[in-house]
Amino acid sequence: MTRPDETPGPDEIAARLAKVRARDNAGTTAGADGPQGRGQAGSGLGIGMRISIELVTTVAVGGALGYGLDVWWGSAPAAMVVCLLFGGAAGVSNAYRVVKGLDDSVGLGGAIARKETKEGNKSRGQSG
């Protein structure tokens, strides 16, 4: 930092004050516009585990949902089959999110759009 024998000029003080104010404001307003979708740091093992968990849980949920509907409607095994397929699709879409580093909020399309706008902003920020 500054040594005490160096008295900063008014311009420097103004610059420093502006910097501190900017930091304060950044601290209070950052992220007000929603999720940042921070990619979770992870090793290959971690990502592999996440993908397998996503696939297993969504298929399991789909199967359970289908089973429930079958019991309710007496339509075995039609609902089970359909729901397992949907569960698989949901698992793939969730695994796709993990691989692409998208956020985990509802709606795959929205997650892709958010990531694209974020990267668009980033590249624009770099060029401009």
Partner: peptide, 10 residues
Amino acid sequence: IPIELISYLS
């Protein structure tokens, strides 16, 4: 809708 619903429920 079913895909997102299952995704949500999971």
